[in-house]
């Protein structure tokens, strides 16, 4: 009898008090911080479903009593920036127009640069690359004014091409780094074999290297979509009045309203603006982290 009880005890490690309290502590810490991190999202969501009356009277943290989509509709179709009351849809369209060519071209250039840098011997290429990397650490403010002058001279200032070119320029360091590091990890024998087979620069790039780049291209898309969508400064300066991206329009809607602030509309607008990067983030999961890590750490 005694020995039976003992062996039953022995089959499970007795948790010490210390360990139990440790577990409780861990979950409490993580849980509280999770609440802190989620708080803004929660506030935005609940407020965006309230009517203005409820916002005025109620508390910001309470759930909506009358669930309403009016604020969302208003934010999308008729929120005002100054006198212009066409809603965020305009900004959304502009952001898409900016996003697509910027992402495509910055990735293509990144892949091409990375390929040329890691497989071909080009004198001075590493110095160029070093300058490019260094440039990515410099605040945009240093480059902005000369670029504005340059675009003005060529007549494209305040147009779609101007903002797209700007995104390509400022995306180039990290895209090049990303692809260069990825290609450095590919077996160089592959490249040598292709050269012996008589393939040239473009042939190797298009038939061998690009098809192998799918994983890193996914990472690149994730990084560029979030970065370009979230950009505020460059869009503000270079895109011009007719192409202002969603983030700029959002800030205008929120910070230029006169009279009573329509918090429900503002918060709906904020959520709408975040929708694209949030979706990318949630769908991409671990790839997102991979992007952060591989863009920055030498692979």
């Amino acid at each position: 009898m005694m020995s039976q009880a003992k062996s039953a005890n022995a089959s499970k490690r007795p948790l010490t008090y210390q360990e139990v309290w440790g577990r409780i502590g861990i979950y409490t810490f993580l849980g509280l911080l999770a609440l802190f991190f989620l708080l803004p999202l929660y506030v935005m969501l609940v407020t965006s479903f309230k009517s203005m009356d409820e916002v005025r009277l109620g508390l910001i943290f309470s759930l909506p009593q009358h669930f309403s989509l009016d604020a969302w509709v208003k934010a999308w179709t008729s929120a005002c920036t100054g006198l212009d009351c066409t809603g965020l849809q305009v900004g959304f369209g502009n952001s898409v127009k900016i996003l697509v060519p910027s992402v495509v071209f910055s990735i293509l250039f990144g892949a091409l640069n990375g390929y040329a840098l890691s497989f071909w011997k080009v004198k001075g290429a590493n110095v160029l690359f070093a300058c490019l990397l260094l440039g990515s650490f410099v605040p945009y403010q240093v480059f902005i004014y000369p670029l504005v002058r340059f675009y003005a001279q060529t007549g494209i200032y305040g147009s779609l091409p101007a903002i797209v070119i700007t995104h390509i320029i400022f995306g180039m360091p990290v895209m090049t780094l990303l692809f260069r590091n990825y290609y450095s990890g590919l077996p160089v024998e592959l490249f040598k074999a292709a050269r012996i087979d008589g393939a040239g620069f473009w042939k190797i790039f298009i038939s061998i290297v690009l098809p192998m780049s799918v994983p890193i291209a996914i990472v690149a898309v994730i990084m560029q979509v979030t970065a370009i969508w979230n950009d505020f400064l460059l869009g503000l300066v270079f895109a011009g009045r007719d192409n202002l991206p969603m983030t700029v329009q959002l800030n205008n809607i929120v910070n230029t309203t006169t009279g009573e602030r329509a918090y429900n509309v503002n918060m709906a607008a904020t959520v709408l603006t975040s929708l694209v990067p949030l979706t990318v983030y949630l769908v991409s999961g671990r790839w997102f982290v991979r992007g952060i890590a591989s863009g920055a750490v030498k692979g």
Partner: peptide
């Protein structure tokens, strides 16, 4: 996921939402 999602959002959004939460008349 919860701890990293803010990093996917724009700074504009971060600024706006905390301004509301910390706004004495609202938050």
């Amino acid at each position: 996921t919860v701890f990293l999602y803010p990093y996917a959002m724009s700074f504009v959004v971060a600024g706006l939402i905390w301004q509301w939460i910390l706004n004495p008349d609202l938050g």
